[in-house]
Design a protein around this nucleic acid. Structure first.
Length: 212
DNA sequence: CGACCGATCGTCT
DNA sequence: GACGATCGGTCGA
């Protein structure tokens, strides 16, 4: 599928992954699979800041077959399989050899909602359709077999449709599901659009953590 | 509500 | 052989 609003390489190739993560809010993830187009606005994501980030798969320079795509050039997708059930998609940023990435955690559905509902086996449209990284991949038909696809290509890409999220509507807080990361689990590297119903509900913090 | 638990399998130790 | 950057269901208050 061609698109003239596709975000280009220079957006992903910047060094500040926290900035990129914030800017991804309001952008539209588009997937063209099996002749079917689906899309959704990114409303929640998390930044992973490379080899010194204890929550990242590449922590300590763990460059393995699984994490190899994180070390590739910016503007590609790192898609991996988790908990034996779910596929999760990351946007690789920075530059070749520097494994930064943004995990896409939730979308607000835009196009192909009926297709997404069928993939998710949902009879009613509600926030569970594309809330959570595993759910959004299932809805968009994203699978680990597409690990490493270019986001500049015609299968999966991100568009700028001119939606601007005012800074006061962006909130940040600790990332989800990374309790094993010690102090790094507390870093405010998760970003979301305030009051958007498709955003994950954070689990109860083990210790007092302030959001915003 | 919140807490808990089972599903399910590729990857790394 | 253990363990996830999860999800959805159940159970009890």
């Amino acid at each position: 599928m061609k698109s003239n609003r596709k975000i280009e390489h220079s957006f992903y190739a910047r060094p500040d992954v926290l900035q990129i993560a914030q800017e991804l809010l309001g952008k539209v993830l588009v997937s063209f699979q099996d002749g079917m187009l689906t899309s959704g606005m990114i409303v929640e994501c998390e930044a992973y800041t490379g080899e010194q980030d204890k929550a990242a798969h590449v922590y300590g320079g763990k460059r393995t077959k699984r994490t190899e795509k994180m070390y590739g050039d910016a503007g590609h997708a790192y898609i991996y399989f988790c908990y034996g059930i779910h596929h999760l998609i990351n946007v690789v940023t920075h530059s070749k050899g520097v494994p930064h990435a943004v995990l896409l955690r939730a979308l607000e559905p835009v196009e192909g909602i009926d297709i997404m509902m069928a993939r998710r086996k949902k009879l009613k449209l509600d926030y569970t359709l594309t809330r959570g990284p595993g759910s959004l991949c299932q809805a968009m038909g994203i699978h680990t077999r597409q690990n490493g696809v270019s986001l500049l290509g015609d299968d999966i890409w991100i568009e700028d449709r001119g939606i601007v999220i005012p800074e006061k509507e962006i909130t940040c807080g600790p990332r989800i599901g990374v309790d094993y990361a010690g102090a790094d689990a507390l870093l405010p590297y998760r970003f979301w659009i305030k009051n958007n119903k498709y955003v994950s509900k954070a689990p109860k913090p083990k210790s007092k953590i302030k959001e915003s």
